[in-house]
Simulated scan of single mutants.
Amino acid sequence: MPLVPGLRSPYAKIGRLVYFGRMLDKMRLHAAGRLPLADYGANLGKGFDSRCCNFLRVKYEDLQARVLAGDLDDAALLAWCHERGGARTDEECEIWNGFMIKRGWRDGAAGTLAQRITESGLVGQPVLTMFDYLDYDEGRASAPERPWEKI
């Protein structure tokens, strides 16, 4: 996948959560016509997006409409989610972050990750998780910096 200006790493946190900011970026970029649909279109609102919305107990479409209203920053959008779906505890956020940053490492997504690594020509790179894969595939190559240890 190409490096898309304005699409942040899945490791980037908003409040206590990884991935949430990336999902917001995808919503905004898609609405602006700047998200390559050939690479991202099929999974909008699915996969990690769906997991994130399920974790927050909000509907993707509702969050998307709120994001596109354009009057809230990312922290306020997370607060909006907490108002609707209920606030998450520190422990729940720790579990969410731990699950997400390790997805693809010795779990049910390992086969998919291996396939994507091969298809993207990233064999031999230190890609251990889906987050690593996204960063490498989009040209960020942050895995050697071990961003998960800064979370």
Rank of each mutant, 00 (worst) to 15 (best):
R34Q: 15
D62S: 07
N97A: 12
T129V: 09
G15Y: 03
N54G: 10
D25M: 10
G104I: 02
F20S: 04
R116N: 14
N54T: 06
T89A: 03
V58C: 00
C52M: 14
A79R: 08
W148N: 07
A109I: 04
D74G: 08
Y40S: 01
L78F: 12
D39T: 08
R22W: 11
A114V: 14
I95E: 08
P2M: 06
M23F: 11
D71S: 14
L35W: 04
G21P: 11
V58L: 06
K46Y: 01
Q125P: 10
L35A: 06
F55R: 09
P36R: 01
P126Q: 04
L29N: 05
R34M: 14
S50K: 12
Y11L: 09
V18L: 06
D71G: 06
R34H: 12
G15W: 08
D49T: 11
E94P: 06
L128K: 12
D39V: 10
M23N: 03
R84G: 00
H30W: 03
M23K: 05
L3I: 04
L37V: 06
A42P: 02
W105H: 14
Y11S: 06
G33K: 04
A38E: 13
P5E: 10
K102A: 15
E149R: 15
L128S: 10
R51K: 10
V18E: 02
D74N: 12
G121H: 04
L63A: 01
M27H: 00
G47A: 15
L7N: 03
F99I: 12
V127K: 02
L128I: 03
Y60N: 00
K102Q: 12
V58I: 05
A76E: 14
V4F: 10
C93W: 07
G104C: 01
W80L: 01
A65F: 02
N43W: 08
L29F: 14
